[in-house]
């Protein structure tokens, strides 16, 4: 029940009907301990040349097996894509970032208690048709209720890549947008739209924009190493004091990370001042439809959006 894939083709073939890819293994090993894994394990870690970072004319390509540590600490990536590297340096722990991969961080499974607990049911485990958290405890759940699953999507990296309109290269599908990778959250069984036999091989970032102002905030009860209650990735482009472009994405509040397009529209063309930011922050929860136990997250979203806007313009 184990395949050691040496090539993309071999990995994809092995995965055609069942099984799970294992790269860094940081999520998979935890789930093995909880008895929550579909066999066979398909190890893809030793597939060559999937861990390279390549800068070219039209942008940057990063192999799916590149570790988060080598992304977060990469000087040029930090300069060119600060809104990508900031969360990459903040999430999880140093030891996890050293071995967790880009592809794995995009495709990791939900942190929902009901999914993770060996005794409880969840459609993502196939042992329940309905979401038990919806009628149970969803205090750390979504406040933008997009679909059947009420657990926040776990990928901070996905949240960040959304603000760059990054593309993901998937076997059999070619290049798809990050948005398409995650879909609309309506599938209760998956955190993404990948089918069996589909594997992420690369992430493509568009050409870097000079002088973008980036900020990331991850709301945690402690200083480090916690899944966020809310996370916001913010990119602002300024023309003088006027916001010429804005990209904001919100994580940990819906079953997919998503862009705050209405907030972006409000920001663009307006001066980068507190009035604008306050209005933008208030608008950030316009689409929110909290669950009975997640109303507290709305205040958090407003505060985090405001904070990142202020932080972004304060960066030099």
């Amino acid at each position: 029940m184990h395949i050691q894939a040496k090539s993309i083709e071999e990995a994809v073939r092995a995965h055609s009907t069942e099984g799970e890819f294992r790269a860094g293994g940081t999520d998979v090993q935890e789930r093995i301990r909880a008895g929550n894994l579909s066999l066979p394990i398909i190890d893809i870690q030793s597939i060559a040349v999937l861990d390279e970072i390549e800068f070219h004319e039209s942008g940057t390509t990063i192999g799916a097996l590149t570790t988060l540590e080598s992304i977060g600490n990469h000087d040029q990536l930090q300069r060119d894509y600060p809104a990508f590297t900031l969360p990459t340096r903040t999430l999880a722990t140093p030891q996890i970032r050293n071995f967790a991969t880009l592809g794995g961080s995009l495709c990791q499974r939900t942190r929902c208690w009901y999914y993770r607990h060996p005794e409880l049911g969840c459609p993502k485990k196939g042992n329940s048709d309905t979401c038990l958290a919806r009628d149970g405890n969803h205090q750390r759940g979504v406040c933008f209720d997009f679909g059947p699953c009420v657990a926040p999507h776990p990928s901070s990296v996905g949240c960040a890549l959304l603000t760059y309109d990054a593309q993901v290269e998937v076997t059999g599908r070619g290049k798809i947008s990050i948005g398409d990778l995650y879909g609309d959250g309506s599938d209760p069984t998956r955190e993404h739209t990948l089918e069996k036999g589909q594997m992420i091989t690369h992430v493509h970032l568009p050409k870097a924009i000079e002088n973008e102002k980036a900020a990331y905030y991850r709301m945690m009860s402690r200083k480090w190493a916690e899944w966020p209650a809310v996370e916001v990735v913010t990119r602002l482009m300024l023309d003088g004091n006027v916001i010429s472009d804005a990209k904001l994405s919100l994580g940990a509040v819906a079953n997919i990370p998503f862009r705050l397009t209405e907030v972006e529209e409000l920001l663009i063309g307006n001066p980068a001042n507190d009035d604008t930011f306050q209005s933008a922050a208030q608008l950030s929860v316009a689409r929110a439809n909290p669950l009975p136990q997640t109303g507290h997250k709305l205040k958090m979203v407003v505060a985090c959006v405001l904070h990142t806007l202020q932080q972004a313009v304060a960066t030099t």
Binding site: G24, G25, E30, T93, I96, F99
Partner: peptide, 26 residues
């Protein structure tokens, strides 16, 4: 057993790893 506490930390090719969340075959 979940990569949180770091008590299992070892160096793998010189880098700290949470060995509870690292496949043995790696």
């Amino acid at each position: 057993g979940a990569g949180v506490c770091g008590a299992c930390t070892v160096l793998v090719d010189g880098k700290p790893a949470a060995s509870c969340c690292m496949p043995a075959c790696s």
